[in-house]
Design a protein around this nucleic acid. Structure first.
Lengths: 142, 142
DNA sequence: ATACCTGCAAATGTTTTGCGACTAA
DNA sequence: TTAGTCGCAAAACATTTGCAGGTAT
């Protein structure tokens, strides 16, 4: 069994919640795509496996996944919430193309250092950061 | 007359739009506060001067101000759009306290350099960036 | 048995749109 | 005169909540 299922199970148990087929489906579907899915996209994907599942269940399950550290909610300022994997994934930031909407994930340890310095200057305790660079991607520049 | 009014006027004229008292009120009110105001806050402020103004007009005017470079729409991931001044203001980033919601504006030229390096590595043409550091502020840490 | 869950429908909260009346140029 | 604009009400969206019936433990 995948490690992620164990983590979810453990979380569910520790909170006295129930293990249900719907929750399993949502987790399974989320894990099967490495994309940043919106609630709507995920809902449609889950629906293919379970014709009866409700929108609400997807939202509620994703909230649980966020709580147990399996996913993070991200927001590209377009009013749509997306979910990305964070378990066994390094923190990364995004280059977002404003022409085609594609994005590139980037990792830069120096961002962490910068965060630390900035926080220190303001006696601020940093927890996480979000860096987004908007611009035009390689393909769209042609 | 403030430079901002000139810029707005010029933009209005160049597009063949109309100069109206409502638009003037919204701009005047926006300029009078250095805060990051939400559409709702701004609407309430403008209402104090003009009891009849509509919500819609505030939204539509702020869209115009965005277009002519007098304001930027910012999003702290709480589902509420806010507006901040950008004319004659340096670009800055935000430290956001997740306890009390306060934020601190910070300026770091090194972020610009980092943006340039990251973009170069991916043949990406950077236009703007957004760095948000979430954490706990000085007061809330006590 | 008893919490907890589900899916629906309705509610929410923010932003946008349609429209008839109004107004700046 | 005639586009553009106004404010209202309604629509549009994504997301959340209330609830009656269903289910895991």
């Amino acid at each position: 069994m995948k490690k992620e299922f164990q983590i979810f199970d453990e979380y569910i148990r520790s909170k006295g919640l129930r293990h249900t087929s719907q929750r399993e489906r949502v987790l399974e579907t989320f894990l099967s795509t490495e994309k940043h899915v919106s609630a709507d996209e995920l809902f449609k994907l889950v629906r293919k496996k379970d014709r009866k599942i409700g929108y609400t269940t997807v939202y509620r399950t994703m909230k649980l996944l966020s709580e147990c550290g399996l996913c993070a909610e991200i927001d590209f300022d377009d009013g749509i919430l997306r979910f990305e994997h964070i378990y066994a994934h390094k923190h990364h930031d995004h280059l977002i193309c404003t022409k085609c909407g594609k994005f590139i994930e980037v990792m830069k340890p120096s961002i962490e250092k910068l965060q630390g310095r900035l926080a220190k200057e303001h006696a601020f305790l940093p927890i996480r950061h979000k860096l987004q660079i908007f611009g035009i991607c390689k393909e769209c520049r042609k």
